[in-house]
Design a protein around this nucleic acid. Structure first.
Lengths: 229, 229
DNA sequence: TTACTTAGTGTTTTTAAGACACTAAGTAAA
DNA sequence: TTTACTTAGTGTCTTAAAAACACTAAGTAA
């Protein structure tokens, strides 16, 4: 079966920059292409948008199919539409970035992808298409967003210590932060709930666990508040 | 002549939210549709992306064709891809917003558009498609951007007084600003060049004219500076 | 019991933002 | 030419936020 139009139409794809947090590093998920063009090269997970699905649905579906990731934080980044960004034909790509709790998700390479793996953001191989550009924009966006919106929690387990959270900020922003000032700010925000649990199996004093008060956050955003961390 | 593909393909459009500054109000440029769907209704200027032009090129071309606007500040806003946003078929639209110096550009309605006109941003008619959503996102983006990037100059003539600039900020942000604090901040930024001219034909003390130091701005941005106004 | 590691906690200093009112310069009208 | 009117232009004080800074507490391991 084929589909015919009066004027030529480019193809539409989505690409996802998936960030995860390892113990010591910010990582990005890449897949190794199993088909031409750029066969064997690493690339961002993504693929064609089907005609009866929304852009975000397409992004989630591709993530699921290619990397097994599910129910992640996902936000639109930018749309890339240079005419020769794909050697085959005109392809416009809507890029998304995603944040996942690395601990939850063991990667399994899947359809379309020879392999899927996490790379340190400073240790990425050369990427297919204009994906290096997409990736660097995503990293920049993540850093900016982290400053003024509480999205860091998306990279941590549900319950986390303040040290873990600070560590996350230090890794993403790539600079050390003062412990007392950090705790002051982050608690002063009023979006963390202190649980009655502490971390387990550590060889030193155990830290209290907190969780993010997502309900309160949603309520405040709806009411027009802006958050600056 | 027709074009045939193996899978169905949606259409791709660009839509532009064009802002201009009147004496007393922030305005948006709308066109009245001359063709179905939504014939006769007001809409954002925009149209189909051709297969051999980039997204930004398409936006500039449509602006030129439909409103006669040329060489404007243009930046990508967001991509809208809900499956039923166009009653005819699947259409994904990449939205841009533009800032123009209203004084320069007299509007002339043009091809595809029955009419083109400026509307106060609080006085817009009901819009075709999901254009109301696009418009309100653009307005929000403009306000946020104005806070931390010096883009306001795009709405003013090349040479302007500090009062005009303050007035612009007050109109866009919809709140009064303190004259002395405003001048302190804006001059402290170091991106304004004092000319040796003053405004003409005013019935009171004439104010000094300034211009935006675009070179310096570009240089600093390249060097990684961030600007907060 | 001692050494080691990370958790947890306030105060001071510095910097940026906000509030606030008068004089200067020009035009227009009496 | 004097006077009234309008907008330009200018600094200081107050307040709030950010940054700098060091010790004690609690637990584990040797």
């Amino acid at each position: 079966m084929t589909f015919t139009y009066e004027y030529p139409r480019g193809a539409l794809t989505v690409d996802c920059v998936v960030f995860g947090l390892d113990e010591e590093e910010l990582k990005v998920m890449l897949i190794q292409r199993d088909l031409p063009p750029f066969e064997g090269q690493w690339a961002l997970p993504g693929g064609f948008v089907q005609v009866e699905e929304s852009l975000e649905d397409a992004a989630r579906r591709e993530l699921q199919e290619e990397t097994g990731l599910d129910r992640v934080f996902l936000e639109q980044l930018y749309t890339f539409g240079n005419i020769d960004r794909d050697p085959r034909e005109r392809v416009v790509s809507v890029a998304y970035y995603a944040l996942v709790k690395l601990s939850n998700h063991r990667v399994h390479a899947a359809t379309d992808a020879r392999d899927a793996a996490w790379f340190g953001v400073h240790d990425t191989p050369s990427l297919a298409f204009d994906h290096a550009k997409i990736f660097s924009l995503a990293l920049e966006r993540l850093r900016n967003k982290l400053r003024y919106q509480p999205i860091g929690f998306e990279l941590l387990p549900k319950k986390f210590t303040l040290s873990q959270l600070q560590h996350l900020y230090e890794i993403v922003l790539e600079r050390p932060l003062d412990k007392r000032n950090f705790r002051k700010r982050v608690l002063g925000m009023g979006l963390l709930i202190e649980t009655d649990e502490v971390e387990q199996d550590v060889a030193h004093r155990a830290a209290r666990l907190y969780r993010f008060d997502e309900r309160k956050y949603r309520r405040l955003v709806k009411a027009g508040f802006h958050f600056e961390l």
